[in-house]
Design a protein around this nucleic acid. Structure first.
Lengths: 337, 337
DNA sequence: GCCCGGTTTTGCATCGATGCATTCCTCTTG
DNA sequence: CAAGAGGAATGCATCGATGCAAAACCGGGC
């Protein structure tokens, strides 16, 4: 049994309240008592019971980060940024994986949100329906990362349309004419992947290249093996592509590996651009061109918004657009620079 | 303000205690009251306050996972395993990053351990000193992953000596005679990296190859760029190596990339073996040979041990050795098969 | 009609810490 | 010397939920 305020008070021969005052630096406590209490605290190794404190104060300084998966480096890198920044602000950040299960996501968000355990939530949604979102009381502190806008809550995201368009335009500028879009989610009609596809189509249109539905390769998830499978599928097309725009770096890295296995030279025969700018892509062979969202900025802004909500109780919901840039590396750079 | 038991009780015209009974399925409640209370619960959207419940019950069903870093895929993959398994057991797993800071690690472990917020801790230590470990009361539920044995606590780890020896022996079998060991931590004299170095030396000794200290390349951290730097250093040696045993896959992947930049053919000129079996290594070019610890087994066993400790209050500390195997892939396979 | 056994329902104390307000000092001042 | 100001220390109620045990209720049997 860990010592409580009561134990310390007994040991020091003072009231519970006085010990609490010493612990929190409250009020005026005489030097004599202060040292006596401090000694008792040290000797017993007292630690405040955070449950009790949070219960009384109505605030836990815990926030939860709800993510689809951690073994996607994009999320791991984003998580690091949020944990470090959150810690600096006095929060303890707890991470919850949905493992790609929308049901579990809904559960976590709704449950965690009202459990009084967390002061707030940062959620990177897979796909909550409007109906599910409506179940969350607007008064609660929730910030969403990514698409899926809902007017009731704060959102932090990049401009996926513009970024996808830029990536595709870059491939076109490198001379690509048949460009695959890899990573459309087959069942979801809204959200990030749809927006990226639209950006891709906009770039084609701007260059006067007709859109060919056969070049859109759906994948169930953003993993290396899905990327590899998509590459194999692409190479089986009657007229294979000369460019690949993958909606995540993992997909691109899988495709890169598959291209190697198929004896396809990158970028000479096939130029590839990914999305996320994960560290792996800087060390792949060839290194991976990619859309690079500013993760630190995203983390910081999400925490700003969340803190505002927690402290003020209520703020107008807003969508904040995060900066990004296109990192051109070896996988898409064709003619000697 | 979220509704409390009191609110629901008022709405249903019953006592607080009865609502609690309905919520928890306790005791006998008449059908009539049950439905009436249930209706009130649904209408108000009641959620139990987990802080209050945990405070009263002395148990939160929260466990913390303390890790050096999440953007190392090894930890991300291990984390996934622990979160999934833990969730299935009714725990909520919270992840805390030490970001490679031993001071912060000490803080987190000691603070979290007695905060009453967590029922238990799973810690993958960077390096807690004996003295620091001694500060943790033996009664607390803590399971360590990795080396750094301490008789007071449970440990789950693989046999690093044997694994390192096997990896090195494999390189020798491929014909390597000058094998670098990459990843010894420069300042720490104990722990995982030291054990791996000993395994490496044992393999050399068994093959009658003299140990050359110049072939031991220390790195500050287990990152790709450190691995790349080590590769460059290795290639500057008066007599360059023909094999690389890297203490992590990230180091190996960085080295792989650097070898490519230097025009060194892998595995023909230089065979490489890593450690961890992260997913990236299966898709690198060439794919990476590696020591593969059984992460699911480790997660499961750590949770078994922790649950035991939490439930029984006290168990004899034990060190459990987890299974591993050597995954031989392209980066170390020399003569056609 | 009354007592008994069993089921429902409720009240009170409690987990550990903090807000508020009161009590208790001590020292100053008229 | 009495009154008052202000600092120091404490008690009590409270946060929301649950353990325990008492109270209320029901029907049945003598």
């Amino acid at each position: 049994m860990p010592p409580t305020l009561r134990d310390v008070a007994a040991a020091a021969g003072v009231s519970i309240r006085t010990v609490s005052n010493v612990v929190n630096g409250y009020a005026a406590v005489s030097d004599e008592l202060r040292t006596r209490v401090q000694t008792a605290l040290d000797e017993l190794g007292y630690r405040p019971n955070l449950l009790a404190r949070s219960l009384k104060q109505g605030r836990s300084n815990l926030i939860a980060l709800v993510l689809p998966e951690l073994d996607n480096p994009y999320f791991a890198e984003l998580t690091r940024a949020i944990v470090e920044d959150g810690t600096a602000r006095g929060f303890t950040v707890m991470i919850d994986q949905t493992s790609g299960d929308p049901e579990r996501e809904r559960d976590l968000v709704l449950r965690a949100d009202r459990s009084a355990l967390f002061d707030g939530l940062i959620v990177s949604p897979l796909g909550l329906t409007d109906e599910q979102l409506r179940e969350i009381p607007a008064s609660h502190a929730v910030v969403f990362l990514g698409e899926d806008d809902h007017p009731k809550f704060d959102h932090v995201r990049i401009d996926n349309h513009a970024a996808a368009q830029a990536a595709t335009a870059h491939l076109i500028a490198q001379g690509c004419r048949r460009i695959c879009a890899v990573g459309v989610h087959p069942s979801i009609s809204r959200g990030t992947t749809t927006t990226r596809l639209e950006g891709y189509r906009a770039a084609l249109a701007a260059a006067g290249i007709p859109f060919d539905p056969a070049l859109v390769l759906p994948t169930a998830r953003f993993t290396r093996d899905e990327g590899a499978a998509a590459m194999h599928a692409a190479w089986k097309l009657s007229e294979p592509p000369d460019g690949l725009f993958c909606f995540s770096d993992l997909l691109a890295l899988g495709a890169l590996r598959a291209a190697h296995d198929l004896g396809v030279r990158v970028p000479e025969e096939l130029a590839i651009v990914g999305f996320d700018d994960i560290e792996d892509g800087r060390y792949s062979m060839p290194s991976l061109s990619t859309v690079s969202p500013d993760k630190r900025w995203i983390a910081q802004t999400a925490l700003d918004k969340l803190t505002e909500r927690i402290d003020s109780g209520q703020t107008d919901a807003a969508t904040v657009i995060a900066p990004w840039d296109l990192q051109v590396r070896e996988s898409s750079q064709r003619s000697g620079g």
